[in-house]
Design a protein around this nucleic acid. Sequence first.
DNA 1: AAAATTGCTGACGCCGGCGTCATCAACTAA
DNA 2: TTAGTTGATGACGCCGGCGTCAGCAATTTT
Lengths: 212, 212
Amino acid sequence: MKTEAGQGPAYQRRKADRPAEIVQAGLEEFFAQGYAKASLARIAQRAGVSRATLYLYFDGKDALFEAVAAEAMGPLVAEMAEAVDAPSGSTEELVRRMLRRFYGMITGTKNSALMRILIAEGKSHPDLVARYHALIIRRGEAALGALVQRGIARGELRAGAATAVPQMIVAPAVFYLLHTMIFGDIDRLDVDDFLEAHMDMLFNGMGARSEI
Amino acid sequence: MKTEAGQGPAYQRRKADRPAEIVQAGLEEFFAQGYAKASLARIAQRAGVSRATLYLYFDGKDALFEAVAAEAMGPLVAEMAEAVDAPSGSTEELVRRMLRRFYGMITGTKNSALMRILIAEGKSHPDLVARYHALIIRRGEAALGALVQRGIARGELRAGAATAVPQMIVAPAVFYLLHTMIFGDIDRLDVDDFLEAHMDMLFNGMGARSEI
DNA sequence: AAAATTGCTGACGCCGGCGTCATCAACTAA
DNA sequence: TTAGTTGATGACGCCGGCGTCAGCAATTTT
C-alpha cells in the first residue's frame, strides 16, 4: 500500500523497526518449524527483508534464535508473576485460580510451542534451558513453596507431599500439557473435567479413607 | 578380527543381518541427534556399511526412521504389559510397584529419547504418534482404569478424580519425566523423594481434612 | 544541489545431505 | 573351474541452507 506504486523506492531504511520485525518473523518460523527445519530465507521473507539483512542485526541463526526465545519468555514471566501475587481467599480458591490460569496458558499455542522447542532443542542449547529455568521454573517453584507455607499456616493444608515437593501441585497440569501437545489431534482431554479431577486429587486424594 | 588381515575380502555379504544392524545404528543416531540432525552417512558408518547399502534395505531416511521407532516401541510394550498383569496385594502396594517400575523406565535413557523424538518430530510424523498412542497410551489407560475399578471394588479407593481421569495416577511421574528430560542436567529431582511424595499425594491428598 | 553516510540488497562460494546408477566383487551353482 | 547371481560400493548430480561482500540507492548533511 505504501511502496507498491509504479517506481516508488525499492525499499525503505528503517533501522529502528527491523530488529523487532525480524524477531517476530523468527518467532513464527521457529515455532512453526522447530529450530532445525526453520529457514533464514523464510524468516527474511516473512519480515519483508533480504536474507543478508538478517546478518546486519543478528550474528546468525543461533543468535537470532536466542533473541526469539528471550522474546517469547517475556510474556511467560509476566503471566507467572501476575498469577502468583494475589494471595487472597482460601488456599483452595487460590490454587484453583492459579491452575485455571495455568491451563489457559497451556491451551495457548505460543507457550506449548516454546515448550516443544525447549524439549526438542534443549540438548543443543543448554544455555537457553538454563535461562528458562532461572526465569520461569525457579520463580514458579518459589511461588508454589510460598503458597504451601501459607496454606499450612492457615490450617488448610497438611505437611507431607506438598511440603516435600511443591511441584506436585502443578504436576497434573504438566501432564495435561504434554498429552495435549503430543496427542492433542487424536485424543483430546476435556480441560474442565481434567481441572476438576486435578483439584479433587490435590485436596482429597483418591484413597477411600479420605471420605471417612 | 575377522576380515582385517592383509587382503581378506573387502566386505562380506550378510543379507540376513544387515537390516537389524542398520536399525540398531539408526536407533543410536536418531536418539542421539533427533530426526532432523541425524545423518544417513553416520548411520551407515555406525552400521559398518556404505551409505548406498541403506537404500538396499530401506526406502530412505523416513522409512528407516519408522523402522527404528517401531523397534524402539517393542520393549516399551513388553514392559507395559508386564507391569500391569500382576493384580495381587492391596491397591496401594500395586500402585507403588507400578510407579516404581515407571520411574525406573523414565530413568532409562532409551525411553526418554523416544519421548523426546515424539515431541520434537510429532508434527512431521503423525502416523508415528498414532501408533505410539495405540500401542502404549491406550493400553496404559485401560490398565489404569481396571486398576481403579479393582481398587473401588475392594473399598480401597473412592470414586472421584481417579474414576473421572485415571491418568491422574501417573501424571506426577510424567511431570518427573519431563522435568528430568529438560532440566536434568541443572536441577535433578531425587527419584525416591519424588516417588514418596507422589504416593502421599495420590492416597492422602494435601488437604488438611485428610488428617482428621 | 551535491557530497557523504549507511541501510539494504543480489549474487557468489561453500558445505553437507539425500538419492541413484553403473560397476565391482563375494558368493553360488553347474 | 567357470559362469551366473546379487549383495555391496564409490562416485556423481542435485538441492537447500548458511554466511559474506562489493555495490547500489535511500536518506542525511553540508
